[in-house]
Amino acid sequence: MIVLGIESSCDETAAAVFDTESGLRSNVIASQAEHIPFGGVVPEMASRAHTERIVPVVRQALTDAGVTLDEIRALAVTAGPGLIGSLLVGVSFAKGVAFIRRLPLVPVHHMEAHVFASRIEHPDLAPPFLALVVSGGHTQLIWVPKWGTYRVLGTTRDDAVGEAFDKVAKILGIGYPGGPLIDRLARDGNADWVKFPKAFIKGDPFAFSFSGLKTAVLMAVEKTPENELELRKADLAASFQKAAVGALVQTTLRAARKMRARRVVLGGGVASNSALRREMEAACARIGIEVTRPSPIFCTDNAAMTACAGAFWFERGRRAGYNFNPNPRLPLDAFGNE
């Protein structure tokens, strides 16, 4: 059974073809470089770029997979959360295709797709597990007792962790997007140069907060003499990354112990961060928990994970009508649990 997935929740226009028998057949991602000069995603520019790229990206995904629309059995499309203008382009296009071809349309939650991302390369991956989805827009700890059932244990109170990486990169003047740039710069830095605070929320043991950390970096930069700053950027980046990753790892472990999890599954763009992977694997190994993480190409926003989750839900009857509307704040249980 072959599913075409379409993802346009933020600044990646993506399409992929997933076959429930042979696995992933194609995975096309058009990243929007036009946001780089602005140091962040400009929603209206993102919507415009999606409108221009959606057709070439979908055509490429079909060509790469060696299939035509005649072989597609269902369309999976990101229904939210995300930027509404961006979501609407993917959803409207998918609805047009579904309408004229009389194909079923399967709405997919973007966070759920990030959880399914690990299943693309690990088809035997089996719940229960604890998922940590970390990106520029999201920081969520999700308990997955079985595929298709989710319980959000913790989320961020302010900035998403990827957003904190972007903002710190801006403070350090090293560019955008901040994640990979800080990761690279931190390799040459002393992570103990500044002891940045890790925020934990009283009474909410699985919540995250990164806005105080960002402010602490700003203050440390202001305290650094101007002639030293260039030399200290790597140390500041490494110290920030240590604190951010430390908060993610400690909170994940606390939740894993509470849920008696035997496995942690990573997802989202920040799951590509080398320090997070290293620290999470080391900390989990110490208490006998296994870590599953997707390859970087499935960490960033992509439609392979949308198609993979869509195939799962297609077989369980999830459908959207032509009156279906994307939701920028879609709750994880919006379409019901399995």
Partner: peptide
């Protein structure tokens, strides 16, 4: 309206490409 125009155009693109 930018968003409204895109809803019509993206839907039309889907219909035309797939049809």
């Amino acid at each position: 309206s930018f968003t409204a125009v895109r809803i019509g155009l993206a839907t039309a693109k889907g219909i035309c490409v797939a049809g």
